[in-house]
């Protein structure tokens, strides 16, 4: 049975500094991307590393020639160990979208953030 866990106040999470919280028995990273909040299990689907302890960052846009367009700033988390990049909103790995980090619903009520797991 899913339950709702209080995480913190909205102003406690800045873009670039996720809040890592216990949700039931799980370690979960809660990220701010623009004005929305997203939660990922703090376990990388690649090799089990602490995914959310890596940098929240952007990445290079796919291009046809050697140009370097840094985009999607703060939409990506780069795993703490091996550097795999994941879309924070969907949990999908950029290099292979079939590899997915587990995501959790996030709710904001009266400036409080809750995660359901």
């Amino acid at each position: 049975m899913a339950e709702k866990t209080y995480i913190c106040r909205v102003d406690q999470i800045k873009a670039g500094t996720p809040f890592i919280a216990k949700v039931r028995s799980l370690s979960v990273g809660v990220f701010r991307v623009g004005e929305t909040f997203h939660a990922l299990l703090n376990i990388c689907p690649h090799r089990g590393a602490p995914l959310c302890e890596g940098p929240q960052c952007g990445t290079t846009a796919p291009v046809e020639e050697a140009r370097f367009i840094y985009h999607r700033e703060n939409e990506i988390v780069r795993c703490a160990w091996h550097g795999w990049e994941f879309d924070i909103k969907t949990g999908s790995a950029l290099v292979d979208p079939t590899v997915r980090a587990r995501t959790f619903p996030v709710m904001v009520e009266d400036g409080n953030i809750y995660v359901t797991a």
Binding site: A49, P50, E53, G54, P55, R78, A80, W81, G83
Partner: peptide, 8 residues
């Protein structure tokens, strides 16, 4: 590009 050490 992201240096050698684990980020944790």
């Amino acid at each position: 590009p992201q240096d050698f050490s684990r980020k944790d």
